[in-house]
Design a protein around this nucleic acid. Structure first.
Ligand code: SF4
Ligand code: SF4
Lengths: 146, 146
DNA sequence: ATAATCGTAGACAAATCGAATCTACAATTA
DNA sequence: TAATTGTAGATTCGATTTGTCTACGATTAT
């Protein structure tokens, strides 16, 4: 039970895009180098974010990725679910016969626990990052992004 | 990012033990049959619960497993962590150079999100199950346990 | 004691999933 | 037209999860 590395890459990429000059497209190469990951693999992950409507991509010479919505409209939960999917964390498969699951408390407790985490992640927006982030990190990213 | 099946088995076993007559040891066979899982595999999972001090085991003819603590002293979190471990859900491995991680907000957001879920799971005790559980389920278990 | 019962441990095998690579392709711009 | 850049799919690699099998140790009934 761990968040995948893909989620890690997605979050770091979004942080990078948040810190980059608004409207500027960033190629996958600097994004990948920044995280020591292969560009093609990162591209595959970012395509999921594109399909989720969080970022936009443009091909061509000065193409790349940029945010598709305002920084206060993109939550951590959006990013994570775009990569990990929205399925329930607790799979209560058909272990025994039906009629048994009525009012089951295991399931409701697990669902609520997951909901607690998701609600918090939904409250945390990208704008919170750029507001409170340590200057050191932003400088680094901006230098890389020119 | 899903809870393992082992966690599922552990939770259902604990529910069974909660519903069983107090003090009575339940063999691994009925517990395994109840969930359609192999007895030896389930035993391996339950051994983790034993080592965590949540249940106790006794060999011999009338042996089996029973709760090792009172029902209000065992939380969902105890059970889950005994099986899944206590490592952080978000692994922010060494992606880039040091000095970068100071005051990182990705990490703190993810840690807090996890904490939200864990705190809720810690509040939910086994006693809450037996208090509010649907009678249908308890009857089934009690019938099986004689 | 002895034998039956039951949990424990470890080696091992199978299946699943995550991570990553490679290659060919499509879209855009200079 | 050529260079650049993202996209898509097949495929490989490795780790983890899940499960089996077998031998062992502890307890109890006879
Ligand atoms: S008893 Fe509850 S947790 Fe178990 S399978 Fe049924 S609904 Fe799911
Ligand atoms: S920047 Fe933050 S999330 Fe990324 S590796 Fe450093 S501490 Fe972890």
């Amino acid at each position: 039970m761990k968040f995948s590395k893909a989620t890690n890459y997605a979050l770091h990429t979004m942080l990078y895009l948040v810190a980059a000059p608004a409207g500027k497209s960033i190629g996958v190469r600097p994004l990948a180098e920044f995280q020591n990951v292969s560009p093609t693999y990162l591209s595959k992950i970012l395509t999921q974010l594109v399909k989720a409507g969080l970022i936009a991509s443009t091909p061509g010479v000065h193409g790349g990725y940029r945010l598709a919505k305002s920084k206060d409209a993109i939550s951590f939960l959006d990013i994570i679910q775009a990569v990990e999917g929205t399925a329930s964390l607790f799979e209560c498969g058909p272990g025994h016969d039906a009629g048994f699951h009525e009012g089951c408390l295991i399931r409701s407790v697990m669902a609520r626990a997951e909901d607690r985490m998701e609600r918090y992640l939904q409250e945390q927006k990208l704008i919170d990052l750029v507001d409170r982030v340590d200057g050191h990190m932003l400088e680094f990213i901006r230098r890389e992004a020119q």
